[in-house]
Amino acid sequence: MINLRPKQAVTLQKLTIHIVLLILCLPAMLPLLWMVSTSFKGTDQLYGSSAASGFTFASLIPRPLNLENYPEAMRTVPFALYLRNTVALCIVTVVAAVVSSAFVAYGFARIEFKGKNTMFLLMISTMALPGQVTMIPVFALIRALGWYGTYLPMIVPACFGSAFYIFLLTQFFKTLPQEMSEAARVDGATEWTIFTRLVLPLSKSALATCALFQFMGTWNDFFGPLMYINDPAKYTLAYGLQQFLSLHGGKWAPLMAASTIFTLPIIVLFFLAQRTFIQGIATTGGKS
């Protein structure tokens, strides 16, 4: 039995889907719209009698438009400095993590050696190890090395490769044709040459995915700075925003301005690198 639907039924179905999706869009988008709109509102609109009289879409529009919250946020805490710190830390950890992970992944993907499978399994299993287990000894180690209060506790571990990216890159490197390496070896190329001249240039998309994940990870990282940074001049945005909240909790409009400054670059990054984002995330979950 072939079930052909009349055209009208299809239109009705599509209309229903639109309505359901539009309704669901409200809870998805309103918190972010509310964040941005609050950041441009004045005290009257935020705390006046109208502020607790129910929701209308008009209440999303700042009236009057107040541009003071951004400068006030910047005055209360040095967000420009936190932004510089965060960007610098992101760049360093991205380079460190991607380069080292690619190097290790090449070994796992393209060379046959004794103990490889055991080491690979061991590496995968470290991903399930809760950070709480190693937190205290690692802290003691960092303290003994004199790295407490610096960015080194966040940078140095990244230089040894990250299990997640090594896994991702290993899977990707394996898909490159083996004959290519064989031919290069016959021509006398070393593994290092094959890695840098052949494999890396062919893996730009996978490397970009790892770079993106690491960038987001460092940008969002709260636990690292919470553990290791004590000097306010070294705060990152994530930690600085939490400190702002705990010291000036009631200043909602400047807090929303600060949250917007913190969130906006990530959203812009998403729109610039949308394909890398979605592909990266989809391959991580679907194919492992």
Partner: peptide, 15 residues
């Protein structure tokens, strides 16, 4: 629907 999941955790907590 995807956007909320990339908002940094500290930011979404404050929001």
């Amino acid at each position: 629907f995807y956007l909320p999941s990339i908002v940094p955790t500290v930011a979404s907590s404050v929001v």
